[in-house]
Amino acid sequence: MADSPTPRVLVIGGGASGNAVTVLLRRAGITVDLIEAKPDWNATTGSGITLQGNALRVLRELGVWERVRASGFAFGTLGITTPDGTVLHVAEDIKTGGDDLPATLGMQRPQLQQILIDAVRASGATVRLGTTAETLKQDADGVFVLFSDGTEGHYDLVIGADGLNSATRAAIGIADRPEPTGMAIWRIAAPRPHSVERSDLAYGGPAYIAGYTPTSETTIYAFLAEKCRDRASLDTASYADEMRRLARAYGGAWPEITQHITDPAKVNYTWFNRLLVEGSWHRGRIVLIGDAAHCCPPTIAQGAAQSLEDALVLAELLTGGRDWDNELLQSFHERRIPRVRAVVEASVQIGQWQLDGVRDADVPGLIARIMNLLKELP
């Protein structure tokens, strides 16, 4: 256990990993302060998210599974189609969370965030929004933190869960930065066509991948992945026009979906990035989790799942009665890195095959190998 009788933890970042680790540590009676830079706690950001069984397993551990199940749309197959919508193959999804959980569940990302926000609030953690950590100074007993509002605090441990462009990562001298993979994605939330009851992916056409996932009984999110463009040359006012132009080339449910691609403010355009901090994810009593330590393209839909698993494993180690020392934090990295590396490398490889025009790439085989790995507990 930490040196002080009642250990204090600061969590920087209120995304999936930060929220999850906060709930788990509070359950063990640890004092947790959570700070989030965004005043709205990202409660309205994003279109949709695909959660596979290993992510659902962590959400069940957090005590929010019933709300997630009620809010989302569960399914167990993946359709592969031609650009015109002809179904080539329907694959059974592997139940990475065990037989008692759905293989896959789609949901609206703001819904998931709100469920996690509610769980953090109910945990009794202290939450401060619109707040960042300006200075992190370590001493023999922990970490002294100066906050952006001029207040300060001293903590036994600081958890950097502040995302892809983590200021915490930079502050502790880890030089790794996210790198673009060469692909980008257009996303939008839309009403669910009656025919859409699973994820379908079309390879080919003007985009490398065109897909959609049901996120509730009434909603889906749809996406088109293409070679990344110079964002400076893209006018956000043209986002709907650009996505609609690409979408018009696809059949199946796409004509119905395309009718709803009208508001550029509802279209999101993002580059795919890759990050894997190979060395230790901690310096002293400051440790990185989630996208601050690793991120990958959403080609196998494991980004949020790996972040949630980070939170679960770190909380397990911190609440297991061991000293909060270098050995414990190094064991966290050693336990997570092989699994995370496999996911990141496979996610990047699938996109690279598309960029390189490899026609005989064994995408289903690679995905199956990763999913079978993820069936094992993290």
Results as ranks from 00 to 15, higher is better:
Gln306His: 10
Thr270Asp: 07
Glu327Trp: 05
Arg231Phe: 07
Ala202Gln: 08
Gly98Asn: 07
Val340Gly: 10
Ala293Phe: 02
Arg339Thr: 01
Val120His: 09
Leu101Met: 11
Val267Ile: 01
Ile370Val: 09
Glu152Tyr: 08
Asn268Glu: 11
Glu309Gly: 00
Gly173Met: 02
Glu217Met: 06
Ala207Ser: 14
Leu157Trp: 00
Val358Leu: 08
Ala119Val: 00
Glu217Phe: 06
Gly182Arg: 09
Ile30Lys: 00
Ala171Glu: 08
Gly205Glu: 05
Ala74Cys: 02
Gly142Cys: 09
Glu226Lys: 13
Arg369Tyr: 03
Arg26Cys: 11
Ile174Pro: 06
Leu329Asn: 05
Leu105Pro: 00
Ile300Glu: 03
Ile188Cys: 14
Pro193Ala: 13
His260Arg: 07
Arg69Thr: 02
Ile159Pro: 04
Leu328Met: 04
Ala16Trp: 04
Asn165Thr: 14
Ile220Val: 14
Leu88Asp: 04
Ile185Phe: 07
Asn165Pro: 09
Gly97Tyr: 01
Asp176Thr: 08
Ala304Leu: 15
Ala265Pro: 05
Leu88Gln: 06
Ser347Cys: 13
Pro264His: 08
His333Trp: 14
Asp235Leu: 15
Asp162Ser: 09
Tyr269Val: 12
Ala210Arg: 08
Val64Ala: 11
Leu366Ile: 06
Gly72Cys: 00
Leu246Phe: 10
Ala361Trp: 06
Glu334Cys: 12
Leu24Pro: 01
Arg57Trp: 05
Thr132Val: 15
Leu88Met: 05
Arg369Thr: 11
Glu316Pro: 08
Asp263Gly: 10
Tyr221Lys: 08
Asn165Met: 14
Ala301Cys: 12
Val127Tyr: 12
Asp230Lys: 06
Asp310Arg: 03
Val127Pro: 02
Gly15Pro: 14
Ile117Arg: 06
Ala265Ser: 12
Ala37Arg: 15
Ala240Cys: 03
Ile49Glu: 06
Leu308Pro: 05
Pro83Gly: 12
Ala37Thr: 14
Leu377Gly: 05
Ile94Trp: 01
Leu317Cys: 07
Asp291Gly: 14
Leu201Cys: 11
Thr215Cys: 15
Thr131Met: 15
Leu78Asp: 02
Asn326Trp: 05
Val313Met: 01
Gly160Val: 13
Ala189Tyr: 00
Glu197Ile: 12
Ala293Lys: 00
Ile49Met: 08
Gly284Asn: 04
Val277Thr: 10
Gly79Leu: 10
Ile172Asp: 05
Ala368Glu: 10
Pro191Ser: 10
Gly211Cys: 09
Leu136Ser: 00
Met107Phe: 08
Leu59Trp: 03
Leu224Arg: 05
Leu276Val: 02
Leu112Thr: 09
Leu146His: 09
Asn42Gly: 02
Gln330Thr: 12
Ala361Thr: 07
Arg359Gly: 02
Ala232Ser: 15
Asp263Tyr: 06
Gly13Pro: 09
Asp360Pro: 04
Ala175Gln: 09
Asp241Gly: 15
His294Val: 13
Gln354Arg: 14
Leu276His: 13
Ile220Leu: 09
Thr45His: 15
Leu10Arg: 02
Gly97Val: 02
Ala237Gly: 12
Gly205Ile: 02
Gly173Phe: 02
Asp162Thr: 12
Gly14Glu: 02
Ala222Cys: 13
Arg8Gln: 15
Ser331Ala: 07
Trp41Asp: 12
Glu92Phe: 03
Val90Met: 05
Arg285Cys: 01
Gly98Leu: 01
Trp271His: 11
Pro338Asn: 10
